[in-house]
Amino acid sequence: MSPEVVGAGILGLLVGSFLNVVAHRVPLGESVVRPASRCPGCRTEIRRRDNIPVLSWVLLRGRCRVCSSPISVRYPLVELATALLFAGIAALVGLTWALPAYLYLAGIAVPLALIDLQVRRLPDQIVLPSYAVALVLLTVASAGTGDWAALLRALVGGVSLFALYALIFVVKPGGMGLGDVKLAGVLGLYLAWWGWDALAVGGFLAFLIGGLIAVGLILFTSAGRRSKMPFGPAMLAGAFLALIVAAPVGDWYLGLTGLST
């Protein structure tokens, strides 16, 4: 395993601990900086030695050191998931100029998915600043590689995917939320910077994954066809999957059409 993958995984553990705070506090309108993390039972501030990602939860057996109140297993699972996502991104992107940009995307994906699943909302506090951050990081990546065409492609892709989702939002009211439209623009930037094939595949996979989830919920839960279902996680999953499969899928399609070289 390469050093950048290991390093990204360790960084993911640390970032995941903070993302737990973000996912919990942002929907409540609370600051993610103050106060420090506290036990949900006795409200005692968690000591630094008890705030080591995953390890502290295991050593404390999932309970507060002071009052023994249970601490949800969600916390270490989010930390582990973030570590795996960061490591996967590092393995895919490599130690390149683009790595910080895609690690940032992974970092916002975790709380956005959690919040959308929990409260059916994609907060502007996370999505809107991501436009500026993504543009800065992708510009740095293009400057570092000299691939300015990728940045232009990202701008076109961001506008295009935003426009597509906005059209669906207008034509089919209730089909998706305005937060989905805003997130589409961010994902369009990242997917198109990666390549036109990633943009096309990522856009398609979002609806495919969303449809499969909806069918599963209707078949195995009490959800009905008119039930409001979070689409953000499907959009994010489709985007990350597209980064992996877009190139082979694109080659396969071109082979079918006889356009491949």
Rank of each mutant, 00 (worst) to 15 (best):
D180E: 06
Y104H: 11
A106G: 05
L205Q: 08
W196Y: 12
E30F: 07
V66C: 12
R226M: 08
G174H: 03
G174L: 01
M235I: 09
G232W: 03
A150G: 10
V93N: 01
P27K: 04
L84N: 03
T257S: 12
S72T: 12
I10Q: 11
P233T: 02
P100L: 02
I71Y: 00
M235C: 06
L122S: 00
G88Q: 05
V15E: 05
T96M: 04
I10W: 06
D251F: 14
V215M: 14
A109T: 04
G224A: 05
K172S: 08
A143P: 01
Y75K: 05
L256R: 04
A132I: 13
V186A: 00
L14I: 15
T82R: 11
I89F: 00
R226G: 10
A36M: 13
D124C: 07
S142A: 15
R65H: 15
V32M: 09
W57P: 05
G255Q: 09
L212K: 08
H24I: 10
A81K: 12
V136S: 04
E4W: 14
Y253V: 11
Y131I: 03
S68Y: 14
F162E: 08
Q118V: 06
K172T: 06
A163V: 11
V181G: 03
V54H: 00
L208Y: 10
C67D: 12
P111Q: 08
A246W: 10
Y190W: 12
S69T: 15
W194H: 06
A163H: 02
R47Y: 12
L13M: 07
F162T: 05
A246K: 01
G179E: 00
G250Q: 07
P76C: 03
L187Y: 09
L155P: 04
T82G: 09
G195W: 01
A198E: 02
R48A: 15
V249A: 11
S142W: 03
E30R: 15
F18Y: 05
D116R: 01
P230G: 08
L219P: 03
N51S: 14
R61F: 13
E79A: 04
T261D: 13
N20E: 01
S227N: 13
L259W: 13
S37L: 04
L217C: 05
G202E: 00
G203M: 01
W252V: 01
V186G: 03
A106N: 02
R63N: 06
L105G: 09
S227K: 00
I209C: 02
L59F: 15
S2K: 14
G216W: 10
T139M: 01
R63K: 15
T261W: 15
W252N: 03
A8H: 00
S17W: 00
G41T: 07
T145G: 15
I218G: 06
L137V: 08
F162K: 06
A81C: 11
V171A: 15
G146Q: 08
L138T: 04
A214G: 14
R25L: 00
V73C: 13
R74V: 12
L152F: 14
A101F: 10
R61N: 10
Y104Q: 13
R49Y: 14
C39S: 12
I213L: 14
